[in-house]
Amino acid sequence: MRAIWKGAVSFGLVSVPVKLYSATESKDISFRQVHAKDGGRIKYQRICSLDGEEVAYADIAKGYETEDGEMVILDESDMADLPATSSREISVEKFVPSEQIDPLLFEKSYYLEPEKTGAKPYALLRQALLDADRMALVTVSLRNRMSLAVLRVRDDVIVMQTMMWPDEVRSPDFGSVDVEDAKPAEVKMATMLVETLAGDFDPDEFEDDYREAVEALVKAKIEGGEIKAAPAAKKTGGEVVDLLAALQRSVDAAKTARGETPEPANPAKKTASSSAKKSVAQEKVKKTAKKATKKAAKKAS
């Protein structure tokens, strides 16, 4: 594994230098959108919804949409004024009973590995958490934003789990759970069912059937020769057409600004004009060739 962050756990006057590792990884099957005919990947452009133009990354800003649909644009100077921190400290705020932390608040999990100089205080913190049966409620700066998290022990390793802020947890605002009390006989039967299915959790008993089925399907298609090697994407005339259209719009806008009326687009007229220009050019070449022949004949005589 590769460490993604380095810092120190601070509690009281004790500081534990640590490295941070992602404790989980997603193995969900992901698909690409492709052209069914040839397997070519589908590309997407950054198109402005107002003028229909493609927007360069340099021209993209952050926008905050209000409840009434208005858009507030924030530039880099606005973002620089926001509270942010790049502290390398995992600061312990308090040690709380484990049962007080609702698992619904947990987000992402990380392993904490001690640096060589922090091995002893690391072991001290780990043992203290185990003996007290508590979690350390901490604040930590990740990606320049302050986050709430907890430290707990798993398999002799201290794990940090980032948490959602309390106001990010929604209330179950629906009335379908307000049912009448169950009858004693029904409760007894439900309890018997729970006891019948009781057991210990063994993660090795469970597997992702969907992922394995997709991988088997893909493998079978590869072995059966059902695979397409999509050719490298080629530039098409569409880019030129878009450029010409953009230039035409620019010309029209300039004429409008001068009070002139833009000429309507007429493909047939453009074709005829192009043919006429080509004919004029060919006539000029012929005349030039005749003049050169006459000059050469005079010199020879």
Rank of each mutant, 00 (worst) to 15 (best):
A272S: 13
S141G: 15
E283C: 11
T66P: 00
E215Q: 09
K235D: 03
K120I: 12
I90Q: 01
I47C: 02
A272F: 05
G40K: 06
D38K: 01
R41P: 02
A36H: 14
R32P: 10
A56K: 04
R249I: 10
R170W: 14
M164T: 10
E53V: 04
A276Q: 13
G63Y: 07
I60T: 03
R170P: 00
A182S: 11
K291S: 11
M189Q: 14
P17I: 04
I101H: 10
E263N: 14
V96K: 05
G40L: 01
S250A: 15
V214P: 07
D252N: 13
F31Y: 15
V96G: 03
P184G: 05
V138N: 03
V251W: 12
K298Y: 09
R145G: 11
D202Y: 04
K269P: 07
C48W: 08
V251A: 08
F95E: 15
A136D: 01
A276F: 11
A136I: 10
M163F: 04
L20S: 03
A198L: 13
A232Y: 11
V18I: 08
I47E: 01
D51V: 00
K183P: 08
E195H: 11
K284M: 15
T261D: 02
I158Q: 08
E205M: 01
R41G: 03
I4K: 05
G7A: 10
T24C: 10
E89D: 14
M189S: 14
W5V: 02
G175P: 07
E107A: 06
I101T: 08
E195D: 09
A230K: 07
D181P: 04
A289H: 07
S141C: 13
R46C: 01
G259D: 03
L50Q: 01
G7H: 07
A254Y: 06
S301D: 11
E115L: 09
A61T: 11
A136H: 05
L243T: 05
A265N: 03
E205D: 14
V285I: 13
Q45I: 00
V9W: 03
T139Y: 08
M192R: 04
G7M: 05
K188T: 08
A149K: 01
V280S: 04
D200H: 09
R46N: 09
M71C: 00
E186L: 09
M160W: 11
G199I: 07
A58E: 07
S91N: 10
V16E: 01
A257C: 09
E76Y: 13
S10K: 02
A119N: 13
I47Q: 05
L142K: 13
E93M: 15
V9L: 06
S273W: 00
T85I: 11
Q100P: 12
A23H: 10
K294H: 06
K269D: 13
E180S: 13
V96E: 02
E215R: 12
L137R: 07
D173E: 08
L74F: 01
K235E: 00
V9C: 14
G40H: 03
V18F: 01
